[in-house]
Structures are given as C-alpha cells and as structure tokens.
Amino acid sequence: MMKRTDKRIGCVVIAFGLVCLSWMSIPVSVQAAPGIPPDFDSKGEKIYQRYDRTPLAAMTGTDGTRTLNTFYARRQYPGSPPIIPHKVARAFSGDTVKCLSCHDRGGYDAELDAYAPVTPHPENENCFQCHVPVRTEKLFMENDWVSIDPPKLGRSMLGGSPPPIPHSLQLREDCIACHTGPGAVAEIRVEHGSRGNCRQCHVPQVTTSTFERNN
C-alpha cells in the first residue's frame, strides 16, 4: 500500500534546497570508446549520471502529493508530453534556464506549494517545443479521439517481485527522475531510491507473447 503523509518536514526541505544549490556543476559524461555511440543501451548512462548527482535526500523524500490521476490528466495519452499546469509568463520562451531551475533537480516551490517533478530529459533545451501551457479550456471543435488505458500497476509476476518497465524508454530513460523523491507520483514512487542500478531488477516489457520454440 502507498504511504501518504501530508506533513512536510521542514528540515528535509531546507537540507534539500541547500544540496540543490551546491549541485551547480554539470556532470561530466564518460566518453564512450571510439565507434560506440554515447547513447547505446537506451541511454542507460543517464541513470548512472542522475544517480551520481542526486543527493540521497532528494531520492528518498516522499512528501509530495502528486498522484497518477493528475499525472495522466495532463497527458493526452500515456507517453505524450504533459502540458504545463502552472502559470508561465505570457512571453513564455521556454527559457531552459528558467524551466530547469526547478525541473532539473526538483525541490520544493513555496509559491505553488508543491515539489517540482524532475524531467527525465534535461538535455533537450527547447522546452516549449513539446510543452505548452493552457490558455483556455474551451475547444475550437470537439474531438472524437480516444486514447488507450495507461499501463496497469501491480504487474509483478510473483508477489513482491520487481515489476517490468511498462512504458517505452524513449525520452524516459532516466528512471530516477520520475520514480524517486518527493516530486515523483505517489503510486509509482519507489521506496528503494537509494539503489541506482534500476535495470538490474526492472526490465522493459517488450512483448506480451510467450516463448515458443521454433523447431
């Protein structure tokens, strides 16, 4: 069962804020060997980088209040870029520095009284290319499009076994960004965020068919 606590522990917030400030240097990415593209294995490197630069407090915090309901309400289909639910300047230029000041490492925002979700792809600088705010709720024309159900939770094959990764890894290679810390969605937040090698136990579910011998 998911634990939810509404109280916010002040000292954690402060400690977290300080840690963020001291984390201003960009992690040096390891140069892949010649001929090997830096993004092999579904950009698996990103997990290690994120793990390296995220303080433990930021990975284990559970004070956030985001739920899957709001998570999916901001997306047109599972995997689509979410809209921007908060106010942005009218001239919104997707100023990377501004977006990333909250969404690169997360942290508590007093004005919105919320923990910022962390983007799994901070290397893409052109934020507004995919993320737009909502200026009106009214539609130009109704639309009959329907989406699909999001992946179901609780898919461990054995009770307590690590569930497979139910979504595409594209642009969402960085597990730690979305699945740990107070900014993470409660239902999909892991409580063992201090372990960094996520794909040691969690593997993508590539097919739903079962193994069959060919001969």
Binding site: N69, Q76, V146, S147, K152, G154, E187
Partner: peptide, 16 residues
C-alpha cells in the same frame, strides 16, 4: 486523457 477517465481511475483503484 479524455477517454476513459473513469475507466482509468477504476483501473488505478484496482491497481493499488
């Protein structure tokens, strides 16, 4: 997600 917000919530309920 317009589709089935309700279906989805029910699915989330069952999931949890």
């Amino acid at each position: 997600m317009k589709l089935d917000r309700r279906t989805f919530i029910k699915s989330a309920a069952a999931s949890s």
